[in-house]
């Protein structure tokens, strides 16, 4: 069933695939992202309670969802690498880590910028903000562990173990923080928990989620290619690849 995937464990094939997919991802990512943002900023109706500050949702929610998604993707790549000894999977993992960290930062930052007009303060120890903060720490841990090793193959394995430890912990962290939050704070934030979102708000939100996901995918594809190049700098196929690319 998964046999068609096997050739892509070879770095050269993975690189080729990425190179061919890249233009498509860049184009669709730009279009979807811009459509999502413009729709959210200009055409979606304002929230009846929060007014136009509500529009931050069109960047905040996508980044929050995808920061978690990127971490899971990273852990899955690490798992594939550790179980089936696929070196390309480790490269994918470490190519994804900085993207996830940046998106987590975006989620935190927009959360703070939304909190200021709504709650009157830049930072509250809201359950979701807190777990995003911890997620950022987990990302930084994986990145700095990877960076500390000279031997990048060993680094990939070590960072992979840490990513999996993190992903086992992530649900525990999430629920513990949620529970801790309800223990310490009253239900001051429940105005965000609306039963349902109006469709004219939901559609731009879905498109912005897709748009951000595609942007991340496009950057990821480029970073994965870089990672492959960096690790295989002296291999003959890289040399011919570079010389043909320069001739064009």
């Amino acid at each position: 069933m998964w046999k068609w995937l096997h050739p892509y464990a070879k770095t050269q094939n993975a690189y080729e695939l990425c190179r061919r997919l890249q233009p498509w991802f860049v184009i669709t990512a730009l279009i979807t992202f811009v459509v999502g943002m413009v729709w959210g900023l200009a055409f979606a109706p304002a929230d009846y309670q929060q007014g136009d500050s509500f529009r931050i949702i069109y960047i905040h929610v996508p980044s929050a969802i995808l920061s978690m998604g990127a971490y899971s993707a990273m852990a899955i790549a690490a798992f594939i690498g550790l179980v089936w000894q696929v070196r390309t999977a480790f490269m994918a993992m470490i190519a994804l880590a900085p993207i996830g960290a940046v998106v987590t930062f975006i989620a935190l930052f927009t959360g703070a910028a939304w909190g200021k007009p709504m709650w009157g303060t830049w930072w509250v120890w809201d359950a979701r903000l807190t777990s995003e903060l911890i997620l950022l720490f987990l990302y930084l841990g994986v990145i700095s562990l990877y960076a500390s090793f000279e031997d990048k193959h060993q680094a990939g394995k070590a960072a992979g173990v840490m990513a999996i430890v993190g992903v086992v912990n992530l649900p525990i962290i999430h629920f513990s923080v949620e529970w801790w939050n309800t223990l310490h704070q009253g239900a001051s934030i429940t105005k965000f928990d609306k039963p349902s979102v109006a469709p004219e708000m939901l559609w731009p939100l879905l498109i912005s989620i897709l748009g951000l996901a595609l942007v991340m995918a496009a950057i990821f594809i480029r970073r994965l290619q870089n990672e492959i190049l960096r690790r295989e700098l002296n291999r003959p196929w890289v040399q011919t690849l570079v010389s043909t690319a320069r001739e064009k």
């Binding site: 500050s53 529009r55 931050i56 900085p98 910028a113």
Partner: peptide, 30 residues
């Protein structure tokens, strides 16, 4: 932005800037 200009544009600006920096960094590395 209905009086929320600073917060809305700040968050969108920083987000887009962060993504652009990430993309530029990837291309520079290449």
């Amino acid at each position: 932005m209905g009086g929320y200009a600073f917060y809305v544009w700040l968050s969108f600006g920083v987000s887009v800037l962060a993504l652009v920096l990430l993309a530029v960094d990837a291309m520079r590395q290449q």
